[in-house]
Amino acid sequence: MSSPDADGRPLERVRVDEESRWFWEACRRHELILQRCAACETVRFHPRALCPSCLSAEVAWLRASGRGEIYTFTVTHQNQSPAWRARLPYVLAWIQLDEGPLVLSNVVGAAPEALRIGAAVEVVFDEAADGLAVPRFRLCEAK
C-alpha cells in the first residue's frame, strides 16, 4: 500500500493504462479533460483510443469546466471492502457534466442530508497514490 492520507487512510491507487494515461496526467495538474473526436466531433468519456461513434483514432483533448449537477446519488452504508468500510457512509453519485457526459464519482464535503438531485457541483481533486489525483465533486456555494 502507498502512504496514507491526512486521515490515515491509504491513498487511492488508480489504474493507469495506455488509453487513459493523458486523463490521469491531467488530473495530476488538477485539470478534468474529455476527448473530442477530430473526425466526427463526438465528445466522449471515459477516455479511449478510438471514437466509439466512428472508430477514428484522431482525437483532441478538451478541458472540461469541472462544473455540473447531481443526476442521482446514493448514500452508501455498507461495503465489504475494508478500505471503503473506513469511509462509511459515503456518497456515490452520477454527475451530469455541463459538457454532456455523465460521470460516476463521489460528492464530498457535505452532509448526505444536504444533497439534492439537480444541485450544482464542481470538481475537486483528491490526492492519490503515485502522485496522481482523483476527481470528485463538492456542492457549489449557494449564490
Partner: peptide, 9 residues
C-alpha cells in the same frame, strides 16, 4: 478504472 476509485456497490 473510472468506477473503482468511487466505491460503487
Amino acid at each position: 478504472a473510472f468506477y473503482a476509485p468511487y466505491g460503487p456497490t
